[in-house]
Design a protein around this nucleic acid. Sequence first.
DNA 1: ATTATATGCCACCGTTTGGTGTCATGTCAA
DNA 2: TTGACATGACACCAAACGGTGGCATATAAT
Lengths: 110, 110
Amino acid sequence: MSDNNQSRDVFDAIADPTRRRLIQLLSETEETPLHELTVKFDMGRTAVSKHLNILKEAGLVVDRKVGRETRYRLNAAPLQQIQDWVAFYSRFWSTNMLRLNELLVEEEEE
Amino acid sequence: MSDNNQSRDVFDAIADPTRRRLIQLLSETEETPLHELTVKFDMGRTAVSKHLNILKEAGLVVDRKVGRETRYRLNAAPLQQIQDWVAFYSRFWSTNMLRLNELLVEEEEE
DNA sequence: ATTATATGCCACCGTTTGGTGTCATGTCAA
DNA sequence: TTGACATGACACCAAACGGTGGCATATAAT
């Protein structure tokens, strides 16, 4: 159904701060060409392009050529994997909260 | 309030599959010594220990010496950062759903 | 007392990562 | 048509990563 050309682990793709910032920037627009993204970073065009390619490998970004520029668009769908994964562990910090409360109550009663 | 000895980015810590498996294993027990974790992986003790240290740097794991062994315990709390981050983008795959529907409707009406 | 176990620490090593600069090519503007 | 712009592709590089093995030490078991 959805696009699964994921040759790269999504967890891996979002590990880098630059790539997370790219995701954020792309979430603010419909479509942005490489050169426009590049000016927002303290690094060369080649580096930004590489990061975008990694995001593309993870399926988080789609690119499209328009004239001489390549425009990038966010595809947030693969992030569901992350959400599913982390949702499983939400129960653990909840129960830790409960356990913390137990300890506090015990201390009060001593 | 909570423990913030995070010298390591949580996104970075969970990027590695071995470390995610460690998190999963630790979620199944209260506390597990290094040697017991080691036997579950196809790598040496040193490698597993390194991964656990990285998780520790991210605050995802707490260790405690008991006799000659070092026991590790999961602390899922820092994973909230991940959840918060990804939650922000959930609206994007939802709106993509909506946009997909729009496109389908347009096609039908043509 | 001796031996086995569990670990930390360190040196080492090949591969990946995240950046650089350069060159060739395609496209837009004058 | 000439020149500026946007990009891809490539070689290169230092640093980080993910693994190894060996050694020293503390604890447990015999």
